[in-house]
Simulated scan of single mutants.
Amino acid sequence: MCGPCQNTLTGRSARRRSLECGRVQHLAHETDGLCAHGCLAAVGYTGQVMDKYTPRLMFQLLLAAFFILCVVVSPSMAQSGLMTGIVYDDRGEPIRGATMRAENPAAYPRTLTTTSDQKGRISLVGLRSGQWHFTVEYPGFQPTSFAMPITAASSSRPPRPVIVRMERIASLILAGPLEGVDVKLLRADLTAADEAYAKGDFDAAITGYSAALTKAPALTSIGLQLGNAYRQKKDTAKAVDAFETVLKADPANGTALYELGEIREGEGQLDVARDFYQKAATADPSWAKPVLQLGILASNQGQTDAAIEQLKKVAIVDPKSAEAVQAESLLQKISR
């Protein structure tokens, strides 16, 4: 007697009998006295379902598959995190094309890689929560390694970027902005400042960047970090001073122009902010961020045509960027 379909099987021969229980037609070897319906895991069963599953059985199978996916996939997805950073050389200039490798033996996949963009910016998404080891490499420079814990990403509190500084392999004759500078002392100041910034100790970071800037005032990247530290501390006036000092040495510094645009926009000086964003986009035609901000600013002011023009331009400037994805999303909202 088969429990599910109440069909009685007699004998223990190996011949196959077609059974019809009213819900499903199937074949079964009579080696265990049970038919296939509801007994697919029975010992000795070698038959197969011929027609179609019942709606109830199909629902049970789908429910089981969903449960397995929830158990296997969801925890790792829920625990994914983000790492961002900026790669500089030993003269404070951003490095484009540096390779960063992230490794964690307890994660899957165990290794992830990415490269820095034209501004030295670097990021990795989908990192499982836990301790990761990072290695940054670039031809002609000594590899830089460090370890740090990764936690689940939060849209309300994005991680602060890690500052990575790389040293040249060969001993080069220092000239230009570092001529006559004690590089070891400069590096010590920058390392201490970077570590303080990463920890959120912005007072210590400001002290370190200021000391480094005194030793090498021509290194505009230090001035940018000093301005960012003041912004994090919400000392807007000193942040503006820091970025304007950078522009005195480098009038086409797109990052300083963009930062001043954000500050002025936050103060409600929208026309001034727009001017800074436009200058930033002109200074670095491959940078999509100021173009996106011009589109957002126009949209917020109800200037739909101007907003659409700028948002479409983002995909032209850098089609693979996060800004391009955001611009496309905003375009869809505007067109509704």
Rank of each mutant, 00 (worst) to 15 (best):
A307T: 13
A153Q: 10
A281G: 07
K289W: 06
V181S: 07
T191G: 11
V164S: 02
P158F: 08
I222E: 08
K199W: 06
V272G: 05
A322W: 12
L270A: 07
T236A: 04
R160H: 03
S286N: 14
G223R: 00
P143M: 10
C2Q: 07
I308A: 08
Q303M: 08
P139I: 12
P143E: 09
K333I: 12
G200R: 14
M58Q: 14
L257Y: 04
A211V: 04
L34V: 10
M148T: 09
G180M: 01
L226H: 05
A193H: 06
G176R: 09
L34Y: 05
L330N: 09
S286H: 10
G200W: 06
G85L: 00
R274A: 15
E309I: 05
P94C: 08
N300L: 14
E20A: 14
V314D: 02
C2F: 01
T113F: 03
M100D: 00
R91Y: 02
I95W: 03
D271R: 12
T282K: 12
Q6R: 13
V325P: 07
S74F: 13
Q48A: 10
T191Q: 10
A218C: 01
E323W: 13
A249G: 10
V87G: 06
T255E: 15
V183W: 01
A170T: 13
G227H: 00
A198K: 13
A273E: 02
K320V: 02
Q269K: 13
V246L: 05
A107M: 03
T31G: 11
L260Q: 04
R336D: 05
A306E: 11
A41Y: 03
R336G: 14
A283I: 08
T144F: 09
G254F: 04
T304Y: 06
S154P: 07
G261C: 08
L34A: 06
R101H: 01
K233T: 05
V291T: 10
A78Q: 15
K313I: 02
S145V: 01
I150E: 01
A288N: 09
E259W: 03
S123Q: 14
C39D: 11
L247R: 03
Q332H: 09
V24H: 00
A273F: 04
P285A: 02
S286G: 09
C35V: 07
Q142S: 15
P94T: 12
L63A: 14
K313D: 05
S80P: 00
F276W: 11
V24Y: 06
Y88N: 06
F243N: 01
K199R: 14
R12A: 06
R231V: 07
I68F: 15
T255M: 13
V43S: 15
P158Y: 04
P139T: 11
R91K: 07
V291F: 05
P75C: 06
A249P: 02
N300H: 15
K289A: 14
G268D: 07
E262S: 05
Y88M: 11
L297N: 09
